[in-house]
Computed example of a mutant assay.
Amino acid sequence: MSFLGLRKWPTPVARPLWPFIAASTVTFYLVSKMQDLAVRSEEYAKDPRNPYSAQIAKEAHH
């Protein structure tokens, strides 16, 4: 029997959400990798608006 819609035992939260947490982690990783590859591409590496251009130029000389 429930009292005002509350159950006797708490509803599990983490267990049913694990696929969404895993998918979010994979998505975040892949998007960050794609962003890094796009920033370092030939077209944008020498663009003065690129905030990482100095870092890319410094790494290219090594």
Results as ranks from 00 to 15, higher is better:
25 T>P: 01
54 A>P: 06
57 A>L: 06
49 R>Q: 04
31 V>I: 13
50 N>D: 01
10 P>Y: 03
13 V>W: 10
32 S>Q: 09
35 Q>S: 10
26 V>T: 01
33 K>G: 08
16 P>I: 05
52 Y>L: 06
47 D>Y: 02
33 K>C: 06
37 L>A: 08
50 N>Y: 03
24 S>Q: 03
20 F>Y: 14
45 A>N: 00
54 A>Q: 12
22 A>Q: 06
44 Y>N: 15
13 V>F: 07
29 Y>I: 13
6 L>I: 14
58 K>H: 11
22 A>S: 10
28 F>S: 10
1 M>A: 15
33 K>N: 07
9 W>G: 05
44 Y>Q: 10
21 I>E: 07
53 S>G: 09
56 I>S: 01
9 W>A: 11
48 P>Q: 03
30 L>S: 05
26 V>Q: 00
12 P>F: 04
55 Q>R: 10
29 Y>M: 13
55 Q>N: 08
17 L>C: 09
19 P>V: 03
44 Y>W: 10
52 Y>R: 05
62 H>V: 03
13 V>N: 04
49 R>M: 06
10 P>Q: 09
52 Y>P: 00
3 F>V: 15
13 V>A: 09
26 V>W: 00
32 S>H: 07
37 L>I: 00
60 A>K: 15
32 S>A: 12
43 E>W: 10
26 V>I: 12
40 R>W: 05
14 A>H: 07
61 H>I: 13
35 Q>W: 01
13 V>K: 10
